[in-house]
Design a protein around this nucleic acid. Sequence first.
DNA 1: GTCTATAATGTGATAGAC
DNA 2: GTCTATCACATTATAGAC
Lengths: 193, 193
Amino acid sequence: MAPRSTQILEAAARLIARRGVRGLRVEELAAEAGVSTGLIYYHFKDRTGILRQTLEFINDRAERYTTGGAEDAEPLAPREELEAVLLLELQDTPVVRENSSAWGELRASAVFDEVLRDDLARATLVWVQEVAALLGQVRPTAPAPALAAAGERLTALLEGLSMRWLSGGLRIDRARDLMRGAIDAELALLREK
Amino acid sequence: MAPRSTQILEAAARLIARRGVRGLRVEELAAEAGVSTGLIYYHFKDRTGILRQTLEFINDRAERYTTGGAEDAEPLAPREELEAVLLLELQDTPVVRENSSAWGELRASAVFDEVLRDDLARATLVWVQEVAALLGQVRPTAPAPALAAAGERLTALLEGLSMRWLSGGLRIDRARDLMRGAIDAELALLREK
DNA sequence: GTCTATAATGTGATAGAC
DNA sequence: GTCTATCACATTATAGAC
């Protein structure tokens, strides 16, 4: 992608995280990106185009920091890796907060805006399957449907906890503890099967 | 509360469920409620006032259909009652859809709007404690902190599943199955303690 | 590709009659 | 308490120069 587009999308992610999808103003985005409004419409057609491509951009970036960084460190044990992946999204750092916040906003918008639904569903599926695969490494004898269900629950829970965290109703440490507990609970259930 | 206010709040809940908080237009609300815009500002001061009181209204209503209806039916076993309470919010009926949708929207808005945070936190706490109490009836020997954590997770999961359901990424039957599975998982974990 | 206007419309909020 | 009329401004989007 052209550097200018990327620059605008970075600004959009930043702004959505700060003001929300509903609070995103094209003029403000232009200022944040250091370009004119005209240029934004040149690159993205309309406001919806901005949102769509920002969602895509955020997904790519999350994938990068999910997968990335695994090369230098020693490989983790399955259980530890599972926990690491799920706790990755529950960190109070600028980038993660930005991604989580924007993701939550886009998810919430999708309730009323069909445009984003497909992208969202696709990204969610990939994520669920990744978690299910990791669960399978911890519980090799567990049946696939049970793993899929657990993956779906853990990721949905993560979204729920993330939202409470971002809306100020839950401290990040508490959110992380709860997430760890959920992993314990799911693994306890999978052991019984 | 005056009947007129209630009438407007009902319309607001309906409209927020249909268009979202970000899509709520005062003029449209007036039309939906069958009153003038002036009257709305007379009763609610400003747009934020509408949102706050609608949140309150929704909470009250949810409490009513959560607690209500328990008189006529025979008392359920603890496990069944727990399941019933949690599945209550995962039904594809107009009222529940409306409540869940509006609740999710208000939660999402709170990420960027502090005004709603306190009300939201208070309502969440009540809900978490209710679920924790029910869990305690199923697992009388479980320690209180473990029950509280499980309650927090189950309610957060419900919000996450609800969002996916409403945004079209999850069928309601599947969501209900996943919720039941989560209850199993939490109860399995509590048994170990 | 990028910018500077500016058109066109949407939207919250208020004044004042009844 | 309720309505009508309207202001003031915010916001998306486009036209046309460079």
